[in-house]
Simulated assay, not measured.
Amino acid sequence: MLSIIEEFYENQQEPSKSCFLSLRKIILDFDPNIKETWKYQIPFFYYKDNMFCYLYKQKKGNLPYIGFAKGNLMENEMLEKGNRKKMKVLPIDPRLDIPKELILEILAEAKKLY
């Protein structure tokens, strides 16, 4: 039987499914202190017991994105605020190569806030 987190990934349609799984691996491999949990009905990642980032998809277009809990304190121009008060997101087009170096750069910026 799959966990609720595993069900989230399994229930995604391709190419988003592969994209989400790759993003999950990038985030978890970034630092051993990052742990995945289920919060707000989405995969959420904690860094040293603090909300760090999460994976979800846009309402329009269903494109995956990484949301950052302290996004309002982050400066990377690739992050989008939209109508969010605290969080910013990095949209990922699942039909293109995942921008791993950019993601690692943004994860490092986020980590400095903790």
Rank of each mutant, 00 (worst) to 15 (best):
R24T: 07
E6K: 05
I27A: 00
M51R: 13
Y40I: 12
K25I: 06
F52R: 14
L79D: 03
I98Y: 10
P91K: 05
F30V: 05
R24Q: 09
E75C: 09
K81S: 02
P91A: 01
E77K: 15
G67F: 07
L63R: 15
Y56R: 03
V89I: 12
K86D: 12
L107G: 08
I92P: 01
N11F: 05
R84L: 14
N72D: 13
F44S: 03
Y56C: 03
N83K: 10
G71S: 10
L28Q: 06
I103W: 10
E101P: 15
A69P: 02
L21K: 15
N83R: 05
F20A: 07
A69C: 11
P94T: 00
P94V: 00
L113P: 05
E36M: 00
D97K: 13
E105N: 08
G61D: 11
Q41T: 12
F30G: 01
F44P: 01
I42M: 13
E36N: 01
L2T: 15
E14M: 04
F52K: 11
P94Q: 02
E36D: 03
S22R: 15
N76P: 10
N33D: 07
I66Q: 00
S3C: 03
E6Y: 06
L28F: 07
Q13P: 01
G82N: 06
F52E: 09
K70H: 11
F68C: 11
I66W: 00
E7A: 02
Y54Q: 08
L96P: 01
K35A: 06
P91Y: 01
M74R: 10
I42R: 04
E109L: 09
P91W: 00
I26H: 14
D31R: 01
M1F: 14
Q41R: 13
N72L: 14
K48P: 05
F52W: 06
I26S: 07
P94R: 01
N33A: 05
P99D: 02
Y46R: 12
K60D: 09
